[in-house]
Structures are given as structure tokens and as C-alpha cells.
Design a protein around this nucleic acid. Structure first.
Lengths: 345, 345
DNA sequence: ATGAAAGCGCTAACAC
DNA sequence: GTGTTAGCGCTTTCAT
């Protein structure tokens, strides 16, 4: 093993010219370690030395390089990852807000990536986060098979499924009580005297909508109302399709007197269709947003921001002690009554 | 200079047990560099070697450490930063969506942090991003003085102000044409026959609302309508305050027949107040969202997602060549007419 | 109270 | 086609 003396001149790179800690040390006339001590607020530094270093740092506009620090400190970033389908959906944006708040309380920064609702893109997106060494990974699952995630958890990265569970894989989960919420919302329509109540939402193969359709059925069954599958429309993932399905419902020979809408987009579509036809069809939606309040629509309400907070806190608990059984947190919902469910049957 | 032989045993750390590239190399029976070559898809590797390395990587569930890679590659992260006031506001969430899309096209991940609309928290938040060595920093400025940012730009980090310019500092900027938009929106009310038109919005000291109030005045002046300052309400930053101010307007001895609302929150508040009083006051808002469409409110529309995309692309242009004068991109708006501006004067 | 040197995981010269 | 070695910027034993 040979040992070669190498000239230590560090030619200032012309491109990215940020000062390093050794630049600071040199200017302050102290050793690298002393500069480091000052900048990390370690004790055992003479006050005069401290001042010298701090001045030098300011003069050079020194910003510690978090990449280097994180690498040194175990190669783990001081970040938390959130993989989302579509940031354009206000629901997910609110979840992100909750995560962001909680993360910053813990000194972590939020790293976000969208899979654009493409199941194929989820895995590469997740992988990229893992390579960034986020401390924990929260995701709104969308891929068909999440078996690939199990290993990652065993490798030490907490993985939290948000809004729905993983498919074909276990993990910590935070979801709303969709079924109970939908049951209670539907019941509000029943209590207002409605008997012919339609459901408009997405495919039941989507976890949330499956649960909500189940809750809708629970309510009807509980009231002894037979379920007419012809007015259970699970073909309405968007505003437009919801409006379309609703128009068909309203134009049928035996139109419903009330409609339960599976999510915010469905509620908008349903409302638009009802307005277009001018019928006095009652409506209860799932998800509470500005427009629901503005329009006086009764809804099953919940707090997406809280969901984000709870998910982030669960991740932090895992970080603090990796042990214990997987958690499955179910957040409750509440029915917010306005006017729309009261329209005469 | 002494040279000491150090035992190279790498005791498996019990906590975070992720394989490194040298673990992969060892298992594959090749040198570190060869493993690196394979994993970075460099040429000049025998196929059989490649396979061996790849197999070892899979077996060990190897994930390259982006922190180490980024440090090696100049100490700059493959991320772009976005500092936002409040992720809860759908407007900013949409801007973030645009940035996220554009960033991922370039292989960058979005790092986000919210200052919670606290001017004091902007700087620490920005500093944290800078320490993370984001390639570029986009921010919705909120602090009172951004002089501190000038130096950063000179240090090589492109800084783009989004939605409003910096105070006391120059930078690249992307904004909407608030003034023209507000003028055109107000003009729609004038064209519908209104002469007594109120303004409800935030303080004019906020850039966007200042511009919008100016546009409102432009329209009135252009039509020869004298401006009655008593119906220019710039004290309505929230839904509640907007509703409050509108109620006062409607209850006055000489109520306006039409109102121009300075943003989405103001429009909701105004609409709510009008509904509460049951008057047929006309309304045009700024910002187009679900609720405006659902309620048939005419608005000055724009695309927050595009704003995000344009801002991110501007940042990338700066990254590719740092030179050239600062840009000030003004995105145009359009008036979307629905029903609410037509209510009889 | 301060300093010298090793090393986090990776890639890029520069051999061979 | 493959290996050796230095070093990105930082923190941390271990000396002094």
C-alpha cells in the first residue's frame, strides 16, 4: 500500500462556486474540525474562535451541504416521501398539506412525486424515492401488485399506505371509515323519506368506492329497501361520466328521488345533471369541499389534512421503534347536513 | 504522513441494513468499479459479468444511494424546490402539480415546503432548500424583503418568483396578467349594463390584489364611470371577511348592482352573502374553480398548472445557460362567461 | 480548546 | 474489459 502526497490545492470550480466548510476554516484561520464544531453548535469552542468562524461563513455566504451531511450521518436523507396519483385532485393536495405540516415539525422536508394515476408509473416513482433514501414513504397505492414493497419495509424504510390498503401486500394503513360514512349518508336520505335512492360513483374495484357502495347497500338493507342494481351506477369516475350516468337515471321510466354520490367529482357531476334537468332530486355526497358548501349539498365529511397528519405520525412512530404489529388506522367520518338531502321524495 | 493499515471488515450495522455497491461487487466477485459500471449502464462490460452483477444486486435488493451519487456528482441534488405559502389553497396545489409534471419529465424530483403563510418562516424554509442543494428554487414570495435571495442566485441557484415578484430584489418572475384580466372581467359587468360595481378583495398591498384593483379601476375609468371608493372593499382576505364586507355593501343605502371579486375566496364569500340577502346582484370573480362552474359564476380564468409548468421550464432554461437578462413572464387570462354577470342592473 | 485523518457510498481518472 | 485509487463535503473518533 503506497502513500502518495497529493497537492491539496482546490481550484475554484467556475460553475458552481459555493463555499465549503474548509473554505470557511481557511478564511477563519482554524482547522476544518473547529469550523465544523462551530457550525454544528458543538460546545468547547472559545468565543473568539466562534465569532471568527461565523464571520467567515457569512462572508463566504456559506450554506452547509445537506447532501454531504446526510451521507455522513448514515446515508439517510432528512426527508419523507409522498407518492401521489394526481396532485391536481384537491383531496390529495390536502393530505399532502397535513403530511407537510407534520414533517416540518420534525425537521423533515417533504419530497413529492406524482404517478399521474398511471399504475405502471408507481413503481419507478417509488424506487426513485427509495434511492433518495427518504426516511419513510407514504403512498396512495395505485399499482395492481405491491409485493415489491414488502422487502423495502424489511430493509428499514417504513411504508404507509394512505387512503387505501396495498394490494397483495401488508403494510401500515390509514383510511377513512368509508363504509360507515356511506351508510350514514345514505341513511340521511332514507330518514328524509326517500325510498328510491341511486348510487353514482366509480368502479367498486377501487377500494374506497367498493366500501362506499357497500355502506350504501348496508343502509338500504337496514331499512328493508330492496336494492335495485339498475340504479347502482359504478361507471362514473369523472365529473362528466357522473353527469352522464345521472342524466340516464333521471330520464329513465322510474327515476330515483335521491342520489348518493361516491366522491367529490361524482357529486359535482350529479349536481350538474340535476340542475340541467330541473328535477328536485335529493343528493348526498362523499367528501366535503367548497363547492358542496356553496351549493348547500349535504355530505359525508372527513378531514384529508388529518389523514395526512395521522399517516405521517404513524411513520414517525415506526421510525422510532420499528417493531410491533402493522397498524390499520381507520379515521371516522361525519355527516354534514345542509339542504340537498331534504328535497321532497 | 503516516499510513496505517486498517482492517476493512464492514460489520453489518443492525439498524439500517441496506446493501452498498461494494457488497454487490463482493457477491458478484468483481471490483467495485465494474459493479458501478454495470449499475450505471456504462459500456465496455462483458455480458456475463453484467449478468453476475445484476443478479447480485437483485439478490441483495440493492438500491443505489442517490445521496452518495449526488454528492459525488458535484454535490447538487437531482431535485427542484418549491416553497409555497399554504398547500391547502387549491391554487397553489395546482401550480405544484404543473411543476411536478415538468420536473419529472427532466428526471428531477419535487421537494416542497410550506411557510404556512408566515412571512417569518419563509427564509428558514428557503435556506433549508438551499442546503439540500436543489438545482433550482421556485417560490411564491411572502416575506417582506427578499434581498437575501440575490446572493443565492449569484451563487448559481436559479430562483423563480411565482405568482408575484420579490420585494426589494430582482429575479425571474412568472405572473398572470392580473390587471388586464380584472379590467376585462369588470368590463363584462359594464357591458351587461351595470354602472354601480363594487370591488371585494384583499389589501392592495398584496401584489395580485393591487393589480386587480387597478384593472377594476381601469375598466370603470375607461367607461367614464367615476370610482366610488366607498364600494372598493380591500379588507376581505378570507371567505368570511368577504361575506361580511358584501353584506355591508348590500345593506347600504346605495347598494351596488354588481360586484367584482378579487379571488376565489372572495368570490365564495360574495356569493354566499348575495344568496343570504336574496338580491339579484351580478358577480364576476377572479380564479376559476369547481365551485364557480357549479354555481354558474362568470370569472376571469387562467391556468395555475400552466403557471407551474412555465415557471419550471424557465428554471431549466436558467440551468442550461445561466446568462441573459432576468425574465418577467406574464401569463394571459381569459374571461369565462357563465350567468352571474348578466343579472339585471 | 483545537487538530489530523478516516470514511459515509458513489463515480471518474487513469492505469493495465 | 477490468481494477486501483482519489475525492465529493461533511462529521467523528482519537490525539494533543
Amino acid at each position: 500500500m503506497t502513500n502518495v502526497d497529493i497537492p491539496r490545492d482546490k481550484p475554484a470550480r467556475p460553475g458552481s462556486s459555493r463555499a465549503t466548510i474548509s473554505d470557511v476554516a481557511r478564511l477563519a484561520g482554524v482547522s476544518l474540525k473547529t469550523a465544523s464544531r462551530v457550525l454544528t453548535n458543538s460546545p468547547n469552542v472559545k468565543d473568539s474562535t466562534r465569532t471568527k468562524v461565523l464571520d467567515a461563513a457569512t462572508a463566504l455566504r456559506f450554506r452547509p451541504n445537506a447532501i454531504a451531511r446526510d451521507l455522513r450521518n448514515g446515508g439517510v436523507a432528512t426527508t419523507i416521501g409522498f407518492v401521489i396519483g394526481d396532485l391536481t385532485n384537491p383531496f390529495y393536495a390536502l393530505v399532502a398539506a397535513g403530511i407537510s405540516q407534520t414533517a416540518s415539525d420534525r425537521g423533515l422536508t417533504l419530497v413529492m412525486a406524482a404517478s399521474d394515476d398511471d399504475p405502471q408509473r408507481e413503481r419507478p416513482t417509488v424506487t426513485s424515492m427509495l434511492e433518495r433514501r427518504v426516511q419513510a414513504l407514504l403512498l396512495v397505492p395505485i399499482a395492481e401488485d405491491h409485493a415489491y414493497l414488502e422487502g423495502e419495509r424489511q430493509l428499514g424504510t417504513p411504508i404507509i399506505a394512505v387512503d387505501r390498503p396495498l394490494s397483495h401486500a401488508a403494510s401500515d394503513v390509514v383510511v377513512f371509515d368509508n363504509r360507515t360514512g356511506a351508510r350514514d349518508g345514505t341513511r340521511a336520505l332514507i330518514d328524509a323519506g326517500h325510498r328510491r335512492i341511486a348510487f353514482v360513483g366509480s368502479s367498486e374495484s377501487l377500494y374506497t368506492h367498493g366500501e362506499r357502495a357497500r355502506g350504501y347497500r348496508d343502509a338500504l338493507g337496514g331499512a328493508g329497501i330492496p336494492i335495485d342494481e339498475s340504479i347502482v351506477r359504478t361507471d362514473a369516475p369523472s365529473v362528466e361520466t357522473a353527469a352522464q350516468s345521472t342524466l340516464q337515471l333521471l330520464d329513465s321510466s322510474e327515476p330515483p328521488t335521491a342520489i348518493f354520490a361516491g366522491n367529490n367529482r361524482a357529486a359535482i357531476g350529479v349536481h350538474r345533471a340535476i340542475a340541467a334537468r330541473g328535477t328536485s332530486t335529493a343528493l348526498v355526497g362523499f367528501d366535503d369541499f367548497d363547492f358542496a358548501e356553496a351549493l348547500g349539498i349535504s355530505v359525508v365529511a372527513h378531514s384529508p389534512v388529518d389523514m395526512g397528519r395521522v399517516a405521517a405520525n404513524l411513520a414517525f412512530r415506526r421510525l422510532d421503534e420499528m417493531t410491533g404489529p402493522l397498524e390499520n388506522i381507520v379515521l371516522s367520518t361525519s355527516v354534514t347536513l345542509r339542504r340537498s338531502h331534504l328535497l321532497a321524495p
